[in-house]
Amino acid sequence: MLPHVSTPRFLDLPPGVAPQKIETPQGTFAALTAIPVSGVVERWPALLVPGLTGSKEDFIAVLMTLAQSGRRVVAIDLRGQYETPGPDDPAAYTCAALGSDVDQLAQVIGGGDPVHLVGHSFGGLVAREAAIDGRTRFASFTLMSSGPGAIEGRRARNGKKIMEEVPARGLEHVWHTRFEPEALANDVSDDIMEFLHKRLLANSPTGLARMAEQVLSMHDRTDELREVEVPTLVLYGEHDDGWPPEAQSEMAARLGADCVVVPGAVHSPAVEAPETTAAALVRFWNTAEQRYLDTRSNIL
């Protein structure tokens, strides 16, 4: 739930990556959109959903590599996160409500084509709602460092503090007592510190507290996800301190999903091991698309 010391430099976007505002029937969402440097898009697009205290910038290190596989790749801020505005109504920040936003975004981004959906941490719980509700046809679904139910361990304790302290004392208090000390202890650079501070304070306090409550109370929906029969990948760091690696491995087995363990990574593989993570995603996406084409060919 706290920022990682390996957070990438946010001030310079890679080639082919640009900020964008995406209009949907449920509102406007801030995004970073990546396209191949050549400008030629040949494969189905991808939508990347960040975690609780994260944002679209958490995917910067993988965006260019993912796009170079021939895709448009879009990373978003959820409703109430960083540069996407949100209301003061707690009901707008349940996993189901946020999952409905993901449905709308995928339909706009896909433009009729299936979309590869990736959810990191809390974003995985949100994206899972969209995958299960059946309103959108997804090309594939990736749970990145996200588990079957409520988060556990140290991150659960941090989430509980966010849920309790944000409404009572505000975001600035949480920054000074929790985020800033950890960042300083890990020698985070001044520019990244400035970004992390700005990002936290830009969150909707209502949204952050409600999303923290959701990640602490979410029930296991693995069996329901399996029934959807969307190609699924479970990807996590070997030292994940959110959901235990063994819990994610067991979830992958229950889903009949592909499983990738990223060596050396903790809770943010896209930040801590971007090339390994991007390669695993591209390989999985390509395989999912080929299987779809093979199936269509057999039907015809």
Rank of each mutant, 00 (worst) to 15 (best):
Y292H: 11
D190M: 15
A270R: 10
V230M: 00
V228S: 05
A30H: 03
G110N: 06
P85S: 15
L48N: 09
G51W: 03
E23K: 14
L2W: 01
E194V: 08
G110H: 04
H239N: 15
E224F: 02
S121H: 09
A252D: 01
C259S: 05
A92R: 06
Q81G: 00
Q214C: 08
S140Q: 08
A278V: 00
G80D: 02
R154Y: 02
T177N: 14
P167Q: 13
V271E: 13
L171Q: 04
P3F: 07
H267G: 09
P205I: 06
E23Y: 08
S189H: 14
A156D: 03
R296H: 04
K56C: 04
V37P: 12
E129Q: 09
A212M: 02
A185N: 09
V5R: 13
E129K: 02
D220E: 00
E152S: 04
R169F: 06
A31V: 10
M163Q: 07
M144T: 13
L184D: 15
P45G: 08
P25I: 13
R9L: 14
C259E: 07
M1A: 10
G86V: 09
R154N: 12
T7P: 03
G242W: 00
S297N: 10
A97R: 06
G16C: 09
P85T: 15
A183P: 08
T33G: 12
E42M: 12
N286P: 04
I132W: 01
E229T: 11
V40R: 15
A265F: 09
W243M: 07
A46R: 06
G39M: 11
G27C: 01
W44N: 14
I192K: 10
F29N: 00
L13N: 11
S140R: 07
V166Q: 02
D241Y: 02
R79G: 12
T53W: 01
Q81Y: 07
P114S: 14
E83A: 15
P167G: 09
L2K: 04
A30F: 02
Y292S: 12
Q26D: 15
P205V: 05
E272Q: 10
M144E: 10
V228H: 05
T142L: 06
M1W: 01
A92L: 12
D89V: 10
G242S: 09
S204P: 01
V230P: 04
A202M: 02
S140L: 07
H173W: 12
T295S: 12
V102Y: 00
L125W: 08
A253H: 08
A156S: 11
N186S: 08
A278L: 05
I22C: 04
A131N: 00
N186F: 13
M251V: 02
V174E: 05
E83W: 14
L11C: 13
R128P: 01
